[in-house]
Design a protein around this nucleic acid. Sequence first.
DNA 1: TTGGGTCACTAGCGCGCGCAAGTCGCGTCA
DNA 2: TGACGCGACTTGCGCGCGCTAGTGACCCAA
Lengths: 334, 334
Amino acid sequence: MSQTTTGRRVTAADIARSLGISRATVGFVLNDTPGQTISEATRTRVLDEARRLGYRPHVAARALATGRTRIVLLVLPDWPLDFNLRRNIEEASLALDEAGYALITYTPHPTGHSRPLWETLQPDVVLAMAPWAPGQVESMRAAGVTRIIPDPDAPPQAEWHEEGPALQVGHLASLGHRRIAFAGSADPRIADLVALRRHLALEVAAERGLEPVPAADIDLTDASAGAVLAEWRAAGVTAIAAYNDDVATAFVGAAQRSGIAVPAGLSVIGHDDTPIASILEPRLTTIRVDTVGLGRFLAELALSAVEERPEPSVGPELRVALVERASTAPPRAG
Amino acid sequence: MSQTTTGRRVTAADIARSLGISRATVGFVLNDTPGQTISEATRTRVLDEARRLGYRPHVAARALATGRTRIVLLVLPDWPLDFNLRRNIEEASLALDEAGYALITYTPHPTGHSRPLWETLQPDVVLAMAPWAPGQVESMRAAGVTRIIPDPDAPPQAEWHEEGPALQVGHLASLGHRRIAFAGSADPRIADLVALRRHLALEVAAERGLEPVPAADIDLTDASAGAVLAEWRAAGVTAIAAYNDDVATAFVGAAQRSGIAVPAGLSVIGHDDTPIASILEPRLTTIRVDTVGLGRFLAELALSAVEERPEPSVGPELRVALVERASTAPPRAG
DNA sequence: TTGGGTCACTAGCGCGCGCAAGTCGCGTCA
DNA sequence: TGACGCGACTTGCGCGCGCTAGTGACCCAA
């Protein structure tokens, strides 16, 4: 028996009426309200009746009464959602769900004129993975959103968890490579992240006293990897650190097409450990990121904002890790 | 001056108080309530004051009062969101926004145990692009969702707007090709759509009295297109109709790698007219789908459900169109 | 016997909004 | 002159829920 039978939705008042008790009692039981003592008998009667009637709290009514919507809005950049990000979001969604919050993802489009979702949804928290664009913060504030992450008032701090490039370069260097190149993607939507990883790679190379790292961004949709590779080979490059596994794949393909064996003649290391990395021949050495941990961290961040407790610190389990496979090897002697 | 100044949110009552009029009048003005006569003077005073105070209606309160959330939930399959689909959604979102509805997209994940979004959001309409999975409909009904599209009670009807394969085969046949192959994608997530397009292609070929169409699904992540192509060539295939532009691209690449010129030695036609189609060399002949029209149609479908008016019929502008470029040509004589 | 202190509840307000029903003054027409 | 219609409002309820401020009944110590 549920609301479909009666046509009207089942409310807490229905439960109370059907049991001959007050609405407040029902509310206390259903919410486990602290500071209220309810006899075990009543408690189970309420719970059973709620189940029997198919009761579902009315979210709008609850939102009106509490002043919170229990919605977390995750603003995504206009990227192609890569494998990791998707798992990430899913994990965050799961963790938030357990805490009674719904995670909704949203990609504002520059050309679209539709009202941003934070106006229509009035979420408790708005979360983004990249810095806010100008105007967004004002728009959110005007819409009544008070909890915004990253905090627009805080000084810009170091990007999260970007230790992959250091691991890539470190690994290649420890194998004995001296001339390493960094390969990015030319997709304009991820330009910031590409630039960041490139910067970090160059930095680490300099610290380790390697020769200057040449860098180039390739277009995955054309054959530009081949041309870049030829250039780099001419310049004596023996290893490539790629922005992600897709870019790495493009270079492995280009190498094979020009008769260069991987890893004997060229080492390539990817980033993200996407499924393709372990399928490819040779299997890709890459950087694994802890998507599950990252997702939970994201959820924790949102919850800490809405429940006003201190921000979680990045745990050690969020660290990235090197996954050594078959696409890297010491440079050919001589 | 807005609610950020006072700390509390601005309500319609604030406007009324500040103007010395009743809350109802404010409501009538703000909603353009039909059947109410409001003097022009009062109307502008209310509107001005609302703007001055930075009034935003409280969505939860409105939802509680009206019984509708003005949310449309679009359930997406676990596909990689291709270019067209994204444009599609964006257009639908825009059209719905104009009508005062918010479009939220959601991908239920089989492994995720989080509550489906239709339970937490209580949307007015739930919309999907593919048939419902078992259990989903029950879950939605239990959550109180009454408007479900496609209607689970209606007999399964022909899929929307799938005329692309017929156009592909028709075009190739009219160029003089007699042995045409259909190339699908092996991605399991889009297996249904691939199967549908394959089926339609075979059907049209049979109708046109062509020789039986060989078909194969390739994995875009490996080199399987090359092997398939070799086989087809041996069987006398002169043209390929591809599931989408990506698959077409894979075959163009495979052909070039084995020294077959496109379109002189092999015709390839794609589907979707993604950006890559016009960039590739040779530029891809493909099928353009009216994403904008389709998006508006989707929005119209949702609105018709929520406002209980008849479903829109598919307009002629939603038809697919052949985009003739450089990857198809008559077969080589002899 | 009385006062105080649990325990297990109930009465009822407030959240912000939509809207049905009522009010009041003013012109119009028989 | 009174009935009536109409424009321009106001009064007030209800949506479903959370939760504060009670209210009895019962027990126990003084």
